[in-house]
Design a binder for these strands. Structure first.
Length: 876
RNA sequence: GGGCGAUUAGCUCAGUUGGCCAGAGCGCUGCCUUUACAUGGCAGAUGUCGGGGGUUCGAGUCCCUCAUCGCCCACCA
């Protein structure tokens, strides 16, 4: 080994993977290899709209899977010369944090309370007057509540960041953002105000899907169906003659929600349904209450469902809403926002007579469940329940985070236009979907399908507390009533604002709620209304114009398939309104992780594998290997075996590198690569580089990994064995052949480390540090193109040499002898070309196979197959 | 009911624009302590490419159809 290089090369005696994560994470943090170059012009920037994970303190397998795949792409882009803008964000705005703060501090928010700067949360448990332990919870203002939420998550986020650093993401942690930060709230409010000014945000009094336990409105995108038991109840409605008297003829309907009978506004059947055609336009009386309702026709009524005629209530389901709107029916709501039957008797019941009032009063204040029992009792008593309820199982709409079925209530809410009520706008958003590059391409159908199925605008107001406040106030009229048509807006320079504690321009706090004064909007924005602005938040829109110009529209949005309808679509909506562009060029959609039974891993099914133990046991690189083995967008079964393979690969990399470097392979100078076998190896490597590069350019990191890995194992098994002897040359005066082997080993090692760097950042960096300057992650992606490497050869020499070596091993394996066992003769019969190729590597083959005599014969016929006869030396 | 995807060795998966005997790894079997690695190495066996049609000289690959699984959507009285 050259003395001048011996100092530069420091190979540990027995390298291992332990501790590499801690060592290199700290080194990268201090050296700033992943820092974004703010001077880079837009065309050299690659910007990534990272999904901000919900801060929970724990890490899920699915997160590791998706983020690592994106990180591999980010690392490739960086090595390929891009200034990678790769921020991380924490999604700490919203319901999960709100719930945790309530439990942790024992508080709940009352937005009507004034801010108390000295507020301290109560002890969460105390001793009550009766001497028993009680859970304490105390009300506080919204601003106090938000302060407590922020206090809680700030502590959590320190731990969370440490956890995330373990998976080796090459994010620039200095760009970390929080969706509840002042900057994010200001961005969200600014965008809202712009939407308001342009008419893209509006308020409306409308039937709204309502979660009774959270007491908040929910949007179409947050719904999910759950199969629930129910029962068909067959009810008799009574026909009424022109004079208004009950005739004795009955009409039978079937319903799963008899408790809504008091909210019935009409019956409806299909216009072509001959059974009911004579009834259209007539009036019937509801059972028990005797409320007069019309019988109407509408094509949404399905003749073969139930009895073919349905009662319309305000509101039992979304079909009722459609009928109510299209048939211009009155609103007769009986369910309050608390999910109970309204206590005051409605006027249409009062108008129906004393019996109706008496009946209603037995329902008033009951929950939906008890009201149903009571109503069934009433119907049974009046003889209007026909037969017994028939149990069924049917899908019921739920808020995805809720545990009670949704009700539909009428309320004043804020909406963003999204094409759900405007065919032209819908067409525009469909077009945006076609302009986006999708990886994999078929994911575009999911977007298209969602846009096609939109049936209303985006409901963005939420009756929650920890979120971005809707930044407006309403005027209060002379009678002290809020006038929702008088909307007061803040100055943009004042953002973020909280209307419950800040005042609108031109007013002071004494005017809050006073006649002629103002009242703050109590609602907050849906978390998606803020998350849909992650490109604007991360890129510094309205805050740092220079940064924004260098990074927006972004290059990449990586995310899961389940939030195409929410995060992806909503982000496109906001960017379209605000900037008239797509928010990014391309979206990569990752697949699911399935458990071995092919079920999606999720918390609710309890089949989650926690990644932390895997990271501990096998090392981060091993887990990353498994994650990046999965094709983009492809669901993958969790397979611990694959992680073990990753660990083996990382260890192999350590050992092969150690061997190559200890053989003197430190100078990759291509001028020394003169031997045919070596040139063949380099030629093959150039092919691998080309394939891996093309794969990465198509965002197919898995293929890049696959070809690199295949090359590396062949390299270890064949090439390394073949050149072992030659590389161990005389160090004082190395022969050209020795120099050639060493230069080739160095070239291959140098290149393989770069090729693996996006996947196995820790072990590649470790090996790189033994002999190369700087960080492998700041090194250039290999090109493998002339003039750097020798050309004019193909890899036939390597292929033939590997074939012969394989045949020799085969013979030894069959004979059950050591691979060190000597071989008397090898007779190789093949074409002239392959024969010549073997001759060129003859000494290496003879050396590696311990062969005494190697004979090369030319076959008569070029088409005849290769024949390799191996005769073992029997003397010992 | 609609849309999208999947179905290849016991298991997990590759198979790029249709082209010679269909591949990898794991697992399995046998052998080898070989001075980079026993956290190893070498070798071996294993497939009606979900079923059925069709196009083609030729189909795992293209078309039709059926089945199963998964995800998403739907106005679920």
């Amino acid at each position: 080994m050259h003395a001048d290089r011996a100092e530069a090369v420091q190979v540990p005696g027995k390298p291992n993977l332990d501790g590499l994560e801690t060592k290199w994470d700290a080194a990268w943090a201090s050296s700033g290899v992943y820092a974004f170059d703010r001077t880079a012009p837009r065309e050299r920037v690659f910007s990534i709209d990272t999904p901000p994970p919900t801060v929970s303190g724990s890490l899920h397998m699915g997160s590791v899977f998706g983020y690592v795949q994106t990180d591999a792409v980010a690392r490739y882009q960086r090595m390929a010369g891009k200034a990678v803008f790769y921020p991380m964000g924490w999604d700490d705005n919203g319901l999960p944090t709100e719930r945790r703060a309530q439990n942790y501090f024992g508080v709940h928010c009352d937005p009507s309370l004034p801010y108390d700067p000295d507020f301290t949360p109560p002890a969460t448990e105390g001793i009550g007057a009766d001497g028993k332990k009680v859970k304490r919870t105390e009300a506080c203002s919204r601003r106090n509540f938000v302060e407590l939420c922020i206090e809680l998550i700030t502590a959590d986020e320190v731990v969370f960041e440490a956890t995330w650093r373990r998976i080796g993401l090459s994010v620039d942690w200095s760009l970390l953002y929080q969706t509840i930060s002042d900057e994010a709230r200001a961005t969200s409010q600014r965008a809202f105000l712009h939407n308001l000014a342009r008419g893209e945000a509006y308020q409306a009094e409308a039937p709204t899907l309502w979660d009774v336990s959270f007491a908040t409105a929910v949007a179409q995108a947050e719904l999910e169906d759950r199969e629930r038991p129910g029962a068909y109840h067959r009810l008799a409605f009574h026909r009424v003659d022109d004079a208004g008297a009950v005739t004795g003829d009955d009409v039978f309907i079937e319903t799963t929600r008899p408790e809504l009978l008091a909210a019935c506004v009409a019956l409806v059947a299909h216009p072509d349904d001959e059974r009911y055609a004579p009834l259209f336009g007539t009036t019937v009386a509801t059972p028990v209450f005797g409320v007069r309702v019309p019988v109407l026709a509408h094509e949404l009524a399905e003749p073969d469902k139930g009895s073919g005629i349905a009662m319309i209530c305000t509101f039992g389901d979304t079909t009722d809403v459609t009928w109510w709107r299209e048939l211009e029916l009155p609103t007769r709501a009986i369910i309050g926002r608390n999910g109970r039957i309204r206590t005051e008797t409605p006027e249409w019941i009062t108008a129906a007579g004393d019996d109706a009032v008496t009946a209603y009063e037995t329902l008033a204040g009951k929950t939906v469940f008890s009201a149903q029992e009571q109503m069934v009792g009433l119907l049974r008593a009046s003889g209007d329940l026909i037969g017994e309820p028939e149990p069924i199982s049917h899908p019921v709409k739920f808020y995805e985070k809720g545990d009670k079925p949704l009700e539909i209530v009428t309320s004043r809410q804020w909406y963003f236009r999204n094409g759900g009520r405007d065919p032209e706008l819908r067409e525009m958003f469909a077009k945006r979907g076609t302009q986006l590059d999708w990886v994999p391409d078929h994911m575009r159908h999911r977007y298209q399908h969602w846009v096609d199925g939109l049936n209303g605008d985006w409901l963005v107001s939420r009756q929650r507390f920890f979120g971005v406040p809707i930044p407006i106030w309403y005027g209060v009229d002379a009678d002290g009533e809020p006038d929702h048509d008088t909307v007061l807006v803040p100055d943009e320079s004042a953002l973020p604002v909280d209307p419950s504690s800040d005042t609108p321009p031109g007013y002071d706090e004494s005017q809050r709620g006073a006649p002629g004064g103002f009242v703050g909007e109590a609602d907050v924005l849906d978390t998606w209304a803020t998350s849909s602005l992650t490109p604007q938040i991360a890129c510094g829109w309205g805050r740092d114009d220079d940064l924004f110009a260098r990074t927006f529209p972004m290059d990449l949005r990586p995310q899961g398939p389940e939030i195409i309808r929410t995060w992806l679509f909503d982000t496109i909506v906001r960017a379209h309104f605000e900037h008239g562009t797509l928010p990014w060029k391309r979206a990569t959609i990752n697949g699911w992780i399935l458990d071995p039974d092919r079920k999606k891993m999720s918390k609710s099914t309890g089949n989650v594998v926690t990644p932390l133990a895997l990271l501990e046991n096998y090392g981060t690189d091993a887990v990353r290997y498994w994650s990046t083995s999965a094709r983009p967008g492809t669901d993958t079964a969790f397979d611990e075996g694959q992680i073990k393979i990753g660990r083996r690969l990382a260890i192999k990399l350590l050992n092969a590198s150690r061997f190559a470097l200890n053989s003197g392979a430190t100078d990759p100078d291509p001028a020394h690569i003169t031997e045919a076998l070596d040139r063949a190896l380099v030629t093959r490597l150039a092919g691998v580089v080309a394939t891996a590069t093309a794969a990465f350019d198509a965002f197919d990191y898995a293929r890049a990994l696959e070809v690199t890995e295949a090359f590396f194992w062949d390299f270890c098994n064949d090439y390394l064995e073949l050149v072992k002897g030659r590389a161990y040359g005389d160090d004082a005066e190395p022969a050209d052949a020795t120099l050639s082997a060493r230069a080739t080993l160095a070239t291959a090692l140098d290149t393989v480390l770069r090729l693996f760097a996006p996947f196995l950042p820790f072990v590649t960096e470790e090996v790189w540090s033994w002999w190369r300057p700087g960080s492998v992650h700041a090194a250039a992606w290999p090109t493998g193109e002339p003039p750097a490497w020798p050309t004019g050869t193909d890899d036939t020499v390597l292929a033939v040499a590997a074939d012969v070596l394989g045949a020799i091993r085969h013979a030894k394996s069959d004979a059950k002898v050591s691979m060190k066992a000597p071989v008397a003769t090898v007779v190789f019969t093949d074409s002239a070309e392959r024969g010549a190729a073997l001759e060129a590597a003859a000494s290496d083959v003879v050396d590696a196979g311990v062969v005494t005599t190697l004979v090369v014969e030319q076959s008569d016929d070029d088409a005849s197959p290769t024949a390799i006869e191996v005769t073992l030396d029997q003397t010992d």
